[in-house]
Simulated scan of single mutants.
Amino acid sequence: MTRMIEGIAGLKALVGEHLGYSPYTEITQEQVNTFADATGDHQWIHIDVERATAGPFGGPIAHGYLTLSLGPMLSPQIFAVTGISMGVNYGAGKVRFPSPVPVGSKLRLGATLQSVEDVAGGAQVTMEFVFEVEGAAKPSCVAEVIFRYYE
Rank of each mutant, 00 (worst) to 15 (best):
M73V: 15
G87P: 01
P60C: 15
G87Q: 00
S85R: 09
A92F: 13
G91C: 08
G93I: 03
G87V: 03
I84K: 02
A62V: 07
L70K: 01
L74E: 08
F57R: 03
S85M: 07
H63C: 07
F79P: 02
V88N: 09
S69A: 15
G59Q: 09
M86L: 15
A52N: 00
G59N: 11
P72V: 05
P76T: 07
A62E: 09
A52D: 05
A92E: 10
P56L: 10
V81I: 14
P72C: 08
A80G: 15
G71F: 15
R51I: 02
G55N: 04
V81A: 11
G64T: 01
T67L: 09
A52P: 02
L66T: 01
P76F: 12
N89G: 12
A54T: 07
P60F: 06
T53I: 00
V81Q: 09
M86W: 06
G87C: 04
G64S: 09
P76M: 10
T67V: 14
M86S: 11
I78H: 13
Y65I: 07
G71N: 13
M73I: 12
S85K: 13
A92R: 04
A52W: 02
L68F: 13
H63S: 07
G71H: 13
M73H: 14
A92K: 02
Y90Q: 02
Y90L: 01
M73Q: 14
Y65V: 04
G91N: 05
L70R: 00
R51A: 12
T82D: 15
M86Y: 08
A80L: 13
I84Q: 04
S69H: 06
A80N: 13
L68R: 00
L74Q: 04
G91V: 02
I84H: 01
G59Y: 14
F57K: 04
T82E: 15
G93Y: 05
G91Q: 08
S75R: 07
Y90N: 03
G71L: 14
G87N: 03
T53N: 12
G58E: 12
H63Y: 13
G64W: 12
P60V: 09
M73C: 12
I84E: 06
G71W: 15
M86R: 14
I78A: 14
N89L: 06
V88P: 09
P60D: 06
L68D: 10
G91M: 09
S69Q: 05
T67S: 13
L74V: 03
F57H: 12
A54L: 11
G93V: 00
A92P: 03
F79Q: 08
S69T: 01
T82S: 15
G58D: 11
G58L: 13
L66R: 02
A52R: 03
L66P: 04
S75T: 13
L70I: 03
I84T: 10
V81T: 07
G64N: 06
H63P: 06
P60H: 06
F79G: 01
A80C: 10
P76H: 11
G59R: 10
S85V: 03
Q77A: 14
M73W: 11
P60N: 15
L66C: 03
